[in-house]
């Protein structure tokens, strides 16, 4: 993702979530967003197939405890 694209995503996300990003924080938020997207990109190259289910499993009987 280019810096401009990341910046546009940050602006749109902040609007959608109702977050005010002070200009002084913007570079720090962008840096952290970049780290997160890099981590997510790493997963794209991972071993998962369509039948690999997520770890959290809803068990209705658990609500009866």
């Amino acid at each position: 993702m280019t810096d401009d694209a990341l910046d546009a995503f940050l602006t749109a996300s902040a609007t959608a979530l109702g977050l005010s990003i002070d200009p002084a924080w913007r570079a720090g938020v962008a840096t952290n967003l970049r780290v997160l997207f890099t981590a997510a990109a790493l997963l794209e190259d991972g071993p998962l197939g369509p039948h690999d289910e997520p770890a959290p499993v809803f068990r209705p009987e658990g609500l009866a405890r």
Binding site: L17, V29, N32, V35, L36, A40, L43, P47, L48, E53
Partner: peptide, 23 residues
């Protein structure tokens, strides 16, 4: 800054991570 960035993370990326957890 970490919390603000984390709030913006698309759900698909997090779901992928939860599948990786089981794997």
């Amino acid at each position: 800054d970490r919390f603000l960035a984390g709030a913006m993370l698309p759900a698909a990326m997090v779901q992928h991570a939860q599948r990786m957890r089981r794997w």
